[in-house]
Amino acid sequence: MSTRDRRVRTGLPVLLWVPAAVALALVVLPVVGLVARSDLSSLPARISSPGAVAALGLSLRTAALSTVLCLLLGGPLAVVLARSRVPGVRVLRAVVLLPLVLPPVVGGLALLYLLGRGGLLGSHLPGVRIPYTTAAVVIAQVFVAMPFLVVGLEGALRTAGERYEAVAATLGARPWTVFRRVTVPLVLPALGSGLVLSFARALGEFGATITFAGSLEGVTRTLPLQVYLLAETDVDGAVALSLLLVVVAVAVIAVARPRALRGQR
């Protein structure tokens, strides 16, 4: 019906189709393999085992809390990085990317040597134990997930520019009003997709968690840790929980992603 459908597109080079197909296969086929390997009849029993339920509940709770912390801490950081003219901001911008390029296990070790008993900060906190607690799981998740929010949000803030904010100021709006009524609405789509990515990353976090927080059912053993443990002994159980993780991830993307994209244009 729309004229766009009839418009002749400039051709896509055929050469791109082959690697594109391989790339797609690389993403989709492993999941297919997982489904093929699973024993669907025993799936309900395996997913509802006490260990699995505890791990899923812990994962959802910690990932949700981590996402909130990413918003409360990473959001302001993105604004400062995008708007501040303080010298050295360029360096900070690079530093924020560190958790993206570090192997998560290294991140976990770094957290251990900061917040652990003998750590830089931890040794000054007598009576407060952070490793082996659910708080440690959340800290590890925030560590690895926050860059996703900060980078996306900062890019959107820089793209939106400061001209709208200047106009709002000339209309009599104080800085906080400008931030609340102009800056935030302008970057809302980027904020949405940043939060979804952060949640997904937190949900899948493994290396930093197992290194920094350990693994104990109901306290620190999230779904990925449970899968890893089961893979050693009960492969069918591991496959069943992997499927559960896939389903949760797909659900998050399906619910939140299109909404985030729609506003973007």
Partner: peptide, 21 residues
């Protein structure tokens, strides 16, 4: 005085209407 307290309005080349309102 900061822009918000000057009472100086600006109409620029681009309308710069807030797109979400």
């Amino acid at each position: 005085l900061p822009p918000a307290r000057r009472g100086v309005g600006l109409l620029a080349q681009d309308a710069l209407l807030f797109p979400h309102l």
